[in-house]
Design a protein around this nucleic acid. Structure first.
Length: 443
RNA sequence: GGCCCUAUCGUCUAGCCUGGUUAGGACACCACGCUUUCAAUGUGGGAACACGGGUUCGAAUCCCGUUGGGGCCA
């Protein structure tokens, strides 16, 4: 009848950078603990010395910190606890549940019958004991195996709910037998479906691009990654909601609503979600976030002191188009250097070179006639559209004939924001000189 | 190969427990509107209950089997 406080743990091996599957496991553990007023604990499972990767532990800690998955206890390292595992192994040998085998210690499996347990996500599971065999709990080098160490720690740390990947289900008879041998109470188990790659195979760190750090470096916002990962294998029942902050998730998440089947990690939706979060930022916030993506953004010196506002304007222009921050330099390069492009790009529909030239000359005339103070986008738009005869798109002599060559002259791109907004930022002098360059290309 | 898990649009999924829905949403895709282009945005569209048996007046939903996928062990 005891009502003990919920304690969950995330127990990664520092064998590589934290990947998206690990982040999800950590998140679910965190959410479950927090929504129950419990504690979330971090344990580093570093007993497999051969597979340790330098920097991995630090990356795991750093990544959890970035996502706000703050742990209440830890990090606890298994390598600090070796004596305890050895004692436990000896204890099992002493009572006959385990035996020595070439310097290692093996736990004895009784092959009769079946082991039954209840999983929070999967429900009742029954596994025949003869599918198991005696397994090593302490290696000859004196280090414990996962089978022993994780279980001793979960007990010592009073973990109430073990939330981990599906791949451990088939070993459950081992863990249950071990608990019995120790005379320990079983925690509750929730086995999460695996994250799969496009080929439907288990997502692995070796395939690359699954490290959370890579996504962060690529300009995915932490809110978007977290939200996206939360939705892989979980969805609120009877709700269509998709956008969740960490706080929202604590309220809405239900372990029982976690999917049983594996989910394919498909970045297409992540791209959309990242765009959603990008659009929710203010240009100022976005500017801060974008600074790492190009030397241009780092300091104002390259675009001239006092142009901070312009940078914000540039960001604001791209904000609705951006899927990830790393796209920014490529999309905005024409603000910082003269565009390079092929003259054929200036051609609007089927018009002749002479007509393009005439169009550009018209733009040049207009630009020269405007005073510097009236170079705002609204005014520019008004004047240009009047000149274009205010004909709607598609009509003979439509706006495109005037505006397309102008826009290309300014950007050198076949896709970009509109010319008026661009010119407002670029200023009259540069706008005119770019139109002139375009004209000279047609000679 | 043995064991275990699993199965709704291309993808993430709601619905399943407590049988009766035009099987809902989102991403992606397509079309249209807006528009100089690309986005953003609005409207609309195509798109799924793996298969076979039962039970039942009625099955995505309950039961059995098959097949597919995945995991663990070897």
């Amino acid at each position: 009848m005891k009502q003990s406080q919920v304690r969950t743990r995330f127990a990664p091996s520092p064998t590589g950078f934290l990947h998206v599957g690990g982040l999800r496991t950590a998140l679910y553990n965190y959410l479950f603990a927090k929504q129950n007023g419990g504690l979330f604990i971090l344990r580093i499972e570093d007993t497999d010395r051969a597979r340790l990767v330098e920097g991995a532990e630090q990356n795991i800690l750093e990544t959890l910190r970035i996502f706000g998955l703050d742990f209440d206890e830890g990090p606890i390292r298994q390598s600090d606890n070796l004596e305890r595992y050895r004692q436990c192994a000896k204890e099992l040998v002493a009572e006959g549940a385990a035996y020595g085998d070439n310097g290692a210690i093996r736990f004895r499996i009784i092959e009769d019958g079946a082991t039954k347990f209840t999983d929070i996500i999967h429900g009742e599971i029954e596994i025949k004991n003869k599918t198991q065999e005696d397994f090593i709990i302490l290696k000859s080098d004196g280090f414990p195996t996962y089978n022993l160490a994780h279980l001793v720690d979960d007990h010592d740390m009073a973990i109430t709910h073990v939330i981990r990947g599906d791949e451990f289900i088939s070993s459950m008879p081992k863990y249950i037998a071990l608990h019995k041998a120790f005379g320990w109470e079983l925690p509750q188990y929730a086995h999460l479906p695996l994250l799969l790659n496009k080929n439907r195979a288990k997502l692995s760190k070796r395939e690359g691009d699954t490290a959370v750090k890579d996504f962060l470096d690529d300009g995915y916002l932490k809110e978007a990654i977290l939200n996206f990962v939360a939705l892989l294998g979980w969805h609120p029942s009877k709700s269509d909601r998709e956008i969740f902050s960490l706080e929202d998730l604590i309220k809405a998440f239900k372990l029982e609503d976690v999917q049983k089947a594996g989910a394919i990690f498909d970045m297409t939706k992540l791209d959309w979600m990242n765009g959603e979060y990008i659009r929710r930022k203010s240009p100022r916030e976005l500017l801060e976030l974008a600074k790492p993506y190009s030397p241009t953004w780092v300091s104002d010196t390259q675009v001239g002191v006092g142009h901070h506002l312009d940078l914000e304007k540039i960001i604001a222009l791209e904000q609705p188009r951006l899927k990830k921050l790393s796209e920014l330099p490529g999309r905005t390069d024409y603000f910082f250097k003269e565009p390079e492009y092929d003259a054929v790009l200036l051609k609007w529909k089927q018009i002749s070179d002479a007509e393009i030239k005439k169009s550009l000359e018209t733009s040049k005339q207009i630009l020269k006639s405007i005073s510097d103070k009236n170079f705002g986008k609204e005014n520019l738009e008004k004047i240009f559209l009047e000149k274009a005869g205010n004909l709607p798109a598609g009509k003979a002599g439509d706006r495109g004939e005037l505006l397309w060559p102008l826009r290309v002259a300014l950007t050198g791109k076949k896709a970009s924001p509109g010319p008026f907004e661009i010119m407002e930022i670029l200023g009259q002098k540069k706008a005119i000189s770019r139109v002139e360059s375009a004209i000279s290309m047609l000679k």
